[in-house]
Design a protein around this nucleic acid. Sequence first.
RNA 1: GGCGACGUGGCCAAGUGGUAAGGCAGGGGCCUGCAAAGCCUUUAUCGGCGGUUCGAUUCCGCCCGUCGCCUCCA
Length: 461
Amino acid sequence: MSLYIYNTSSKDKEEFKPIDNNEVKIYSCGPTVYNVPHIGNLRAFVFADSLYRWLKYGEKYETKWVMNITDVDDKTIRDSQKEYPELSAEEALKKFTRKYEDAFFADLEKINIKKDSFIENPRATEYIKAMQDLTKDIYEQGFAKIVDGSVFFDVKKYTESNKYGVLLNLNLDNLKSGTRTLADEIEKENVQDFALWKGKKEGEPCWDFELDGQSLPGRPGWHIECSAMSSVLLGLPFDIHTGGIDLVFPHHENEIAQAQAGWNKKTANFWVHNEHLMVEGKKMSKSLGNFYVLQDLIDKGVDPEVIRFFFISNHYRAKINLSEDSLQNAENTLQKIRNQLAIKEGGSMSTEEKKQEFYQAMQDDLNTPVAFSVLFELLKGDYKKDEVEDFFKFAEKVFGVRFLPKNEQIPEKIQKIAQDRWQAKKDKNFELADDLRKKALEEGYEIRDTADSYEILPLKQ
RNA sequence: GGCGACGUGGCCAAGUGGUAAGGCAGGGGCCUGCAAAGCCUUUAUCGGCGGUUCGAUUCCGCCCGUCGCCUCCA
């Protein structure tokens, strides 16, 4: 069975075939580095990582994965100037965004997204030339206009020869009436027009730009950043574009329009979007007080691996609700898998059938909830130990979560305690035995009795 | 107002036109000096009302509810 992926542009699962034989090119919208990523951002990145991992380890494709860093936009400019008023606009922006870029990669590391999975993490500020070139191409094709030093994409003109609304049904008239006035933004002729290039405002960082004989110092619009970076690094069209569901419109729709208008090119074959994370049943927001970043959860004693497991054990196109209960559930479940693997022995049945079931679940638009149910069946039945372990090693790669026991050397000190306790137990000195077990526990090791002996397990093994 | 998603046992979550996987939690039991782990066992008719059908949780219509997008957003 081949891989089927839900494509937002067709609203259906489609058979996935790479454009180039065995190589898959993926572009994921990365963070805007004006803050540390929140837990909802991380869900999107973990999803992209799991898709990448399945393509690489499950489907054995060569992969080229790009995730960009948006390091120039309204928010980064605004906040960098607030934070470093003493620096020049350019220096402030750079210092500010680098700080949060580092924080971003630190979080990725914690949640087990490896930096070397990416072939590139382009910074928007390092691709200004490509953005300007695309802007120029769109303008020369007649799909852009210059207004007060800025360049806008002319949606109305575009719709005369192209479809605007590839990813979702759009009614431009409705769109217009539903949009409120943006008094403090640059005047646009049509509300749905979007900026390709924003003219310089006093005190803001800017780049020189020459268009149609006019000097237009300024900075790129948000949507053009992704079009430029993806086309330079992957070429258009590439295979898969990922992002959160909120990016469908206008961001991704605009990416499609830009490449079409400027180069007459399709952007990506597959548009894949993950649903949102809810917190305690509500959309996460600062005003509701349910806004979490990774460190908040770590401070509460939640292991990042549990968070990753929680994300991955749910389907990526389903809303998930982060709560104390749901995290506890995830922790218990993960712990149970590890316990089961730790005590697994013998077995006579081949795992082949279950492997097939697992594979089929993943091939069906990454149906991870079913895939995990198959893993549980594998643990329950009388399957051959070495085959089960091998398969879980594979699952570890695919999901980026550890299932098998750590091969940790138990310190001699702990071994001594366990020995003493075993002796005390045999002597029926249960008080001492319990004390010693408690002592080991305080050192981070759990002593469990088995049929005729005992075993030592690192806590959180 | 326009577009869309979702509503399955206490919680989470699959799934199919022919009476519903899996996980967590809970109850009972086994094992155990105790504990932990483990093992066995136990709990649903799928938001509501109609329709199509021999038969619907699964298809269609309406209603109710939750959430999202249409404006920056993973």
